[in-house]
Amino acid sequence: MPPKKRPDPRALPGDPALRRELFHSMLLQRRFEEKVGEAYALGKIGGFCHLYIGQEAVSTGILSMLRPDDYVITTYRDHGQALARGMSPRAIMAELFGRVDGCSRGKGGSMHLFDRNLNFLGGHGIVGGHVPVAAGVGFAIKYRGGDQVIVCFMGESVVNTGAFHEALNMAALWKLPCLFIIENNKYGMGTAVERAAAIKDLDRRADSYQGMHGEHVDGQDVFAVREATERALEICRKESRPALLEIRTYRFMGHSMSDAVSGTYRTKAELDEQLKRDPVWMLKARMLEAGDCTEADVAEMEREIKTICQDAWDFADASPEPSAEALYEDVLVDTVS
């Protein structure tokens, strides 16, 4: 019998077209958010604005594995996931500018991006508050006998809230198809995870609940994220059981736009070290090496994305502010069923 051919360790999963798509998704998030930072500095965007830069492999890795009829719910750091789910950059930018063509008609802002057509159930502003809501979506899926999954993104600081435990307990007890994603970017605002959580591997929180799958994964490697997501989704979808993934990533920017990037709660040296594992450039290097694309191809993609981001800005800038009548709209609906 001939010896089994060993797989090439440098080989990348998927085909080149898929990999280019993943890279496009991540690069779009990166450039879009850089544009958002610029708009914020110019006063075009106000309020709280939390950038996702550094975490793009998480949103892209997970959301690229979902079906269109699955559900997504997330936190206030929601721009990256909204883009990765396929929301229009124009509608997102217009929302950030507080204009009527925004995805939430200028009523939600950066923290509350919603898109009903994509089953994107919003960015939510209270740490932990949306986790039971995700369990409710899982309950509704089961109630109707569907095979969708709800994916719930949260920051690592959520694992210390009561809402998290209440939701995970019910999800496990009632066998709900919920995929809980802890995006461990190491800091809850300025508090390092070691200073907040009395547990090292956050995915081990799953052990508290019978039958809950838990796993941690390198969040800067989009392929690793996809593989872990595939395993977890299989459990959620086929067995109608919840799963918990801790995705270890890093936030390259401050907690919000008003927060220094480094110097208070983390050192520049730490940040510089983490920047060496930039998920976007790591993927690019691997694709160049695999021959998926050339520098010229990437430059072309950059040009295309730059046009998309500028177009989103121009669209948002031209979109009208909500009228005074809009103030009282959508407090309640008039309908009765």
């Binding site: 559900y71 719910i73 159930l121 508050g129 949306h130 986790v131 039971p132 809501v133 995700a134 369990a135 409710g136 979506v137 899982g138 309950f139 509704a140 899926i141 109630y143 709800i150 009561g162 809402a163 209440e166 939701a167 307990n169 019910m170 007890l173 069923s337």
Partner: peptide
């Protein structure tokens, strides 16, 4: 029947209502 977990099951109601049930 729920566990004694008001925050949790109130949130379950919210999520179920978002996707079309009437809790």
């Amino acid at each position: 029947d729920t566990p004694i977990t008001e925050l949790g099951f109130a949130g379950v109601g919210v999520g179920a209502a978002m996707v079309g049930l009437r809790p």
